[in-house]
Nucleic acid binder design. Structure first.
Length: 455
RNA sequence: GUGGUCUUAGCUCAGUUGGCAGAGCAUCGGAUUGUGGUUCCGAGUGUCGUGGGUUCGAGCCCCACAUUCCACCCCA
């Protein structure tokens, strides 16, 4: 009995058009990464399970795909798993290869990752991430370059975005100031939902998560300030400095943010609140200090980033941050890094929704040979060889089928030129070159054709 | 992991109270044995997601599973 073919939940096939479009995204991102001196690496799809476990919090462990060795009893704990992101394998890589690397090490990595999540739109079990990280330097130039990369990538792709930026040290400071230093995670998870569920719901969630009424009250200035977006970033930071006066770590966070904004100012990426349209027109990027931005991953310690498309509702399309000690768990302490990850699959969905893919992506073949018989076919093959040697992508229709059929193929593939080969043309050592867009055709010799198609 | 939703031709989808399985597009053939994208004529295709159940009879009702999408949770 023939079984109906299918693929696992949350995975996808990519057809010819999709791959042309996906490669457009990957190529754009890759070329920007290279422009900033990042170098590409790859790591295996699977890691030892111990490398992955405990790196992504409780929730993350549940979402890990585990690999059952063949012949292994189902009751045994699996010893390998599919990678969940590219950052942890990168940390492993850095520790393992530290003697071969010179720091700061700037690498990028474009590979699929797997999560046993429940799929929905823009959310898959297998998806690609495009990571850039610089590791082995505390300098906030790292943060700056990542912001510049974000601006450049999305400008090239034509997507208007806002970059939300926050700092884990500020969040820790806030937790300290309101007298709940051990509740930072609970606070961030709750206030992350402010936009979505509103002030009241956030406050009640904070109480459910064990915050005292005093603590919730003390938090209100932060939440209210986030609600009415009228301040400039500088005003926001000045207020935070006062609010966090008693928290050393909080003030450190404010200082970092000020430095980052000084740097973005210096390179012409002015930071403003998103409601001021002025910045957008100049750089295409709005940078917003968003105190509600939490980001799930536990390992961030400084700046955290998230990028959202302004004209599409699909959630975050890029995210990342600074991690001071990611390599510590693999035995290499005190190495600081900062990185971000572009979500290629979501960028694809945004470009589709906004109709921003370039038209010309689909056709790669420049010319098709159309023939009337076996000897014409062989004649076309010798021409094809010569044209390919000259760097021109050509195809020969593999059988002397009906004109209509062969021309229809050229049409469906959007091949711009067709060369018709019949007895008359062969007798003159020429072919009939037809421009499919205009319908014009001319009898032409090989060397002329090379010039014509190479122009 | 919790609750809900979708699945019918290659694609997008109709399908009435349970009574012979439908359209458009695409494909293929012809009008045109050397000229495509536009025209005209003709043709084909279905284990109705999978497996059970109820019924004289199920695309339609019931159960299980898979899948899609959605809300939680979390996240690219």
């Amino acid at each position: 009995m023939a079984q109906k073919p299918s693929i696992p939940k949350g995975t996808r096939d990519f057809g010819q058009l999709e791959m042309a479009r996906r490669n457009y995204i990957f190529d754009t991102i890759r070329s920007v990464f290279k422009l900033y001196g990042f170098q590409q690496i790859e790591t295996p799809a699977m890691e030892n399970i111990g490398t992955l476990m405990g790196k992504y919090g409780e929730e993350g462990d549940k979402l890990l795909f585990r690999i059952q060795n063949s012949g292994e009893k189902a009751s045994l704990a699996p010893e390998k798993g599919l990678r969940y992101d590219l950052t942890v394998p990168f940390a492993r890589y850095v520790v393992q290869h530290r003697e071969e690397l010179s720091f700061p090490f700037k690498r990028f990595q474009i590979q699929p990752v797997w999560r046993a999540d429940r799929p929905q739109k823009g959310r898959y079990r297998e998806f690609y991430q495009c990571d850039v990280d610089v590791i082995g330097s505390d300098s906030l130039i790292g943060e700056l370059e990542l912001i510049q990369i974000v601006e450049e990538v999305y400008r090239r792709l034509g997507i208007r975005v806002s970059l939300h930026i926050n700092n884990r040290k500020i969040l820790a400071g806030i937790a300290e100031v309101i007298g709940a230093p051990d509740k930072m995670m609970d606070i961030t998870v709750a206030i992350d939902k402010l936009d979505k569920i509103g002030l009241e719901a956030v406050n009640s969630e904070l109480r459910e998560r064990g915050l005292s009424d005093d603590a919730v009250n003390a938090l209100q200035p932060i939440l209210k300030g986030q609600g009415d977006k009228v301040q400039s970033v500088r005003e926001q930071l000045a207020e935070l400095r006062t609010y966090l006066a008693s928290s050393e770590i909080g003030l450190k966070g404010v200082e970092e943010m000020e430095e980052i904004f000084n740097l973005t100012d210096a390179v012409g990426l002015t930071a403003e609140r998103s409601d001021s349209g002025a910045v957008r027109q100049r750089s295409g990027l709005t940078i917003e200090l968003d105190l509600c931005l939490a980001r799930g991953l536990n390992y961030y310690t400084g700046a955290i980033f998230e990028v959202k498309a302004l004209d599409a509702q699909i959630g975050s399309i890029t995210g990342g941050g600074r991690y001071d000690n990611l390599t510590g768990i693999f035995g290499l302490p005190n190495v600081s890094g900062v990185g971000i990850s572009f979500g290629a699959d979501r960028i694809y969905d945004v470009l589709t929704e906004l109709n921003l893919f370039p038209e010309a992506l689909q056709s790669s073949t420049e010319m098709l040979f159309v023939t009337f018989g076996q000897s014409e076919l062989l004649y076309a093959l010798t021409w094809a060889k010569a044209l390919r040697k000259a760097g021109i992508a050509v195809e020969v229709y593999p059988e002397p089928a009906k004109m209509k059929k062969q021309m229809g193929y050229a049409d469906a593939r959007r091949i711009p030129y067709v060369a018709i080969v019949g007895g008359d043309e062969m007798a003159q050592s020429k072919v009939m070159l037809k421009n499919m867009a205009t319908g014009e055709q001319q009898l032409i010799a090989l060397d002329e054709m090379v010039k014509c198609l190479n122009k």
